[in-house]
Amino acid sequence: MRAYYFDDEPTDQRLPHDSGEEVSLDTLDQLGVLYWSIPVAEGESIPSGVDAIAKERGYKNRDVINVSKEGLGDLYETKIKSFFEEHMHEDEEIRYILGGSGFFDVRKHAPHPNQERWIRILCEQGDLLVLPSGIYHRFTLDTNNKIKAARLFQDEPKWIPHNRGPQTDVNPYRADYLSAIQPISVA
């Protein structure tokens, strides 16, 4: 995993968009974003370390998604576009990367929207990332065009995005998220 500020250049979303400004794990933690590195052993499906975190955090269900042209078929382009729309969920988003790589972008909240910045998080095999409910984020593949991830859920598997807008800005889960994070500078 590597985190840095997104450069906001209007080019292919799958490119690194590396501003050269690194983001620390402490900054991610202040945003409620959690990270673990849990290597995948040869022939192992999901390591016991992932199971231990799932048990500790109350994740009862899981599935595996293969985000690639082969895995999504005719839905590939539509799904890639929808994943990259800025949105939030009313549940945590938990992903354990089994293979491939991609980018999760999380919105660093600021008092004024024009001060907000995207933080790009490169996730690769063995990375486990938890995005808190209410955080604005998006996802895209990198130029390898494939990622295989275990999705963990506290209840029944669901993925309901709430795209950013005035109604989502006042969603109770968004409000709870904003009250939970500590104010951090907009470096």
Rank of each mutant, 00 (worst) to 15 (best):
E21V: 14
E21T: 15
L131K: 05
E92S: 08
H17V: 09
F104G: 08
L98Q: 03
H87C: 09
M1F: 07
I80V: 14
R151H: 07
K146A: 03
S68W: 00
P183Q: 06
T168I: 09
F139A: 15
L98A: 01
L129I: 15
Q182H: 13
S179K: 09
G20Y: 02
D105M: 12
K60Q: 14
R62C: 02
S48I: 12
E90P: 04
T140M: 12
N144E: 06
H137T: 04
L28R: 01
L129S: 06
E22K: 06
D105R: 10
E44D: 05
H17R: 07
I65T: 12
L152G: 02
Y96W: 06
V23K: 00
N66G: 02
N171G: 03
E90M: 07
R174D: 04
R107F: 05
G20P: 12
K69G: 15
P10Q: 03
T168K: 03
D18Q: 08
G134S: 07
T27S: 08
S68F: 00
P10A: 07
D51C: 03
P39E: 01
F103E: 13
Q182L: 13
A175C: 08
P132F: 04
F103N: 14
G71W: 01
I119K: 00
I46T: 13
S101K: 08
N145R: 01
F84R: 04
L75Y: 13
G49E: 05
A52M: 04
P16D: 11
F83D: 14
P132T: 10
G43D: 08
D18M: 05
N144A: 11
Q182A: 15
S133R: 04
A150S: 12
K158L: 07
L15M: 14
